[in-house]
Write a protein that binds this DNA or RNA. Structure first.
Lengths: 219, 219
DNA sequence: CGGCATCCTCTTTGATACTG
DNA sequence: CAGTATCAAAGAGGATGCCG
């Protein structure tokens, strides 16, 4: 039905690209790193623009290469769940490096670019830290894009996942670029509010997890 | 003449892939990370199988994106030199992560895969270290593939570059997989020799730089 | 509805030949 | 040396149909 195209080079980079270098492939891995396990339709939702046959092809290839597994969830759910194998999870450093390199390019995106709020999860996991390990737990609800994202800081650990928070100490609402810049500490609170962010609740909860570096970004 | 295809997603990973996600692109970056500056024909030699129009296209795109620069070398050389910009050099963590992930896949390659010995340079830079900083300098010449590669250890630093050594303390000759496995400490000396490697000179020079971990690989 | 497969069109790639 | 030109083959994108 298809043949794996290969660079056919004795080089680790080339071998990696043989497996994950095709269009959409690493974005599929991103989806699975964020959520843990996804249904086919979850993947389609998180990968706006992908053709359905292409998604099916990529999933089959990734399965053959041992990067993902498909698991038939038992009734009454009766759906197929895709998730990364341990080998697939080892792609995390690759995604981290690429995401970091690409971050400065976000500024050049048109305003109508696609956005799914769960895409914030991995960058937030990289950049946020609990700076007050001994403080009481705090919860932040981030409202931008298609669904809320919850940030919980407690005991020196930060947990981030898609979905609404129960009783957030603070909520942050606004367009993705402003909300993201605020959370990543690239904008201070006042500037973010000036640019349309709405912060409802205790701003100290934000300061607890934001990266310390505040660059002097303007635009 | 062309339009940059974009995933159009507000996501750092997707933005990175917009710029360096096309086929061959990261391999071009590899070539430039290894050598520093390359002529068009050097790139063709290091990228066996690439179509020349594709190479020209990719170079133009990378230049537009600020990843590489082209520099007209003055007479009497009178050639164009391509090299990475600082922004392009920041792709090093990406290549490192991908190369590391792909390394285990090298074993599955057919024996007639393409090989250029300078492809060893980056992995060697990652894995080798000078374990005897106070010892006298040593030089290793690696002979496999199309040209020799030189490893120099001195004062705690290891320098690796393509090209012959002047007066090597030891030379290692053999097929790429065996030579590479020996240098990376995945095979011990005896096993490597059994499998066709020829080590001429002082094997202690090898031990000085090899990674300490010796895994129990067999095949 | 979830998980694809098919069909069709359009773009990108690969191979080769040729040029300033 | 550093490309451009040309053309066939493969892949991507989009719409729709199928089947449990």
């Amino acid at each position: 039905m298809f043949d794996m195209r290969s660079y056919d080079q004795y080089c680790g980079l080339a071998r990696a690209l043989d497996v994950v270098g095709d269009r959409w492939t690493l974005l599929i891995v991103r989806e699975l790193l964020i959520g843990g396990a996804c249904r086919y339709t979850d993947l389609q939702h998180g990968l706006p623009g992908i053709a359905t046959n292409l998604l099916a092809d990529r999933l089959r290839q990734l399965e053959e290469q041992g990067v993902i597994t498909r698991e038939a969830a038992p009734p009454p759910v009766a759906t197929t769940l895709f998730h990364l194998t341990p080998r697939g999870e080892e792609l995390w450093p690759v995604l981290r490096a690429l995401g970091r390199w690409g971050a400065p390019l976000l500024a050049e995106l048109p305003d109508d670019a696609e956005f799914r709020s769960h895409w914030l999860v991995l960058p937030l996991r990289i950049h946020l830290a609990d700076h007050v390990p001994d403080g009481p737990p705090v919860t932040i609800e981030v409202r931008t894009g298609d669904q809320p994202v919850t940030v919980e800081a407690a005991g020196g650990e930060v947990r981030i996942h898609a979905g609404a928070a129960v009783a957030p100490d603070v909520t942050v609402t606004g367009a993705p670029p402003v909300v993201a810049s605020l959370l990543f500490g690239e904008l201070d609170l006042d500037t973010a509010v000036e640019r349309g962010a709405v912060v409802d609740g205790d701003p100290a909860a934000l300061a607890r997890v934001q990266p310390k570096v505040v660059s002097s970004n303007s635009r």
